[in-house]
Computed example of a mutant assay.
Amino acid sequence: MSSAAFRGRRGVAAVLAVVAIVVAALVVYLSRASAEPATESAGAGSALAPASAAAPAAPSDPSGALSSAGASPAPPASAKTTPKAPATGWVAVDKAAWKAQADAYQALKADPVPAGVGNLAEFRADCSYSHSAADDPIVFPGLPGASHMHSFIGNAATKASTTVEDLQRYTATSCKPVQDHSAYWVPTLYDNKTGKPVETTGFRVYYRSMMNTSAGQMPMPTGLRMIAGDAKKSVPTPRGAQGQFYCAFYGPGDLDGIARSTNGNWPICGDGATFHFMLQFPDCWDGEHLDSPNHKDHVAYGYNNTCPADHPVKIPAITFDIQYGVKGQPEGYYLASDKDGKSASSMHGDAFVVWDTATMNSRTRNCIQQRRTCDDFGYQR
């Protein structure tokens, strides 16, 4: 899906309740004392080492989401290593590492902008399906098989015990550019008629500004992890509902489908359309934690063009644009997170963000700070 198509339809409403966000503190070097609220669910990951919007009318370009190999593969199953236990709950950022990244970003000069570059403040990674497992290194760290089935995208080494150091070390990826070592995952989609999984055929990860200014913009801190959506939500997703899958076209078409599944929860797409889902993550960070007990409290959605005072660091807003190569059927589908309810309301996504730090800094400076459109490899022309 093109960036212009996304922007042109961003007001139509599929997953986002948040779109406007604006200037926050230019740089917060993590001096606030953190409140440590108690919540129920487990956290994940390790402390950092340096290192709806609306449904658019055009689907992601499958040809831009082909697999690409990173510099070093995942370790073989026979490799004998002593696993490091992932941290849980409130995971503090390494303040020295974040300060070093922030200082390098502030000192970085933007590259000249070639003629013809668009003015959408974003860069992206085009990815493809990597592997599946009943693992979740954010919600159930170190507990293989404890989760519902997930479809993993990006870093090929991702498993239940994955830490930030793992993602930095084992960099084979199904994403372009290969400097994106992150792990992304969503609940596996199943065909309700056959019980077989339906894997993604395109997975574009946008990093963008949802605000009308990039003043105070900062890069993603290495090792940030977060969840968007609610895996426990189980409500119907009929035609016109928020949080539903939709039909994406290269042109005019009915986003809600020309028909619905028997239970009403899934669209049946017309000719030339396929299933899509858009998932928007927060764009403001507390500047102190890489994770929180519910995997959401350390980040926040901006409002009215600004970040809230308790989450003052403006970071790129991640958007998952997910394509499935199916058109719908009367029997419908179900997500691994809601096999019984068979609605789309439990759709959610996890992001464990680890880029090559210099690449993250330069893309944020060139593309978001300068409010220019970038693709997988830099300025989009």
Rank of each mutant, 00 (worst) to 15 (best):
A49Y: 11
D283C: 04
L143T: 10
T201R: 00
A309V: 13
K84I: 14
D271N: 11
T82V: 15
G89Y: 05
W285D: 07
S151Q: 09
P141A: 08
I138C: 04
N366Q: 02
T81E: 07
Y324V: 04
A231M: 00
A110V: 05
Q329D: 03
T222S: 06
P37H: 04
A65D: 14
R372Q: 06
D310H: 10
T158D: 00
W266A: 03
G349C: 07
G145M: 08
A97T: 09
K193Y: 12
A33P: 07
A4Y: 09
H348W: 09
M218G: 03
H298D: 02
S174C: 02
G216P: 02
Y206R: 12
Q244Y: 14
N304M: 07
A87D: 13
A156H: 12
A133M: 13
S151T: 03
S60V: 15
P73N: 15
G251S: 04
R32A: 14
T194M: 06
A259H: 13
L26H: 13
V139D: 04
S3E: 03
Y184T: 05
A183W: 04
V12E: 10
S128Y: 01
M220V: 00
T237G: 00
S345L: 06
P221N: 08
Y206S: 03
E122I: 02
C307A: 07
P75A: 08
P144W: 10
S2F: 00
R10P: 01
